[in-house]
């Protein structure tokens, strides 16, 4: 897992250096993993369709008035006093940013 993430990160850096881009976008393979993780593992509480369960809905309308940085911080660090755990063991911050951006526009299937 860790090795894969380091590899993915290194590959990302190479791509960035090569293309001279400023945006850290997860590789397509990692994007697929992230979508699966959100639908299935975040979905344990937020629902596979992200319409909410024990945790709140994560649909664009529900997130529209929330600042993206706050959502990224919630994913990475959790929310003490609630059931929301920190996911930093499994996600880099730029990956959480990518997830939040996708959630706010309507999450991929």
């Amino acid at each position: 897992m860790l090795i894969r993430r380091i590899a993915a990160g290194a590959l990302g850096l190479l791509l960035l250096a090569g293309a001279g881009l400023a945006v850290a976008e997860p590789t397509p393979a990692r994007q697929k993993e992230l979508v699966h993780m959100v639908r299935q593992d975040c979905g344990s509480c937020h629902g596979m369709t992200l319409q909410g369960g024990l945790g709140p809905a994560l649909l664009p309308a529900a997130l529209a008035d929330k600042p993206a940085e706050g959502l990224v911080a919630t994913i990475i660090g959790g929310r003490p006093g609630t059931a929301m755990p920190p996911w930093h063991r499994f996600l880099a911050e730029d990956e959480a940013q990518w997830i939040v951006a996708r959630l706010m526009e309507g999450f991929p299937k």
Binding site: D41, S44, C45, L54, G78, A83, P85, P86
Partner: peptide, 12 residues
């Protein structure tokens, strides 16, 4: 848990 720090729960 005897006052130990709460551990994150990844699934109920």
């Amino acid at each position: 848990g005897k006052g130990e720090e709460k551990l994150p729960v990844f699934k109920m």
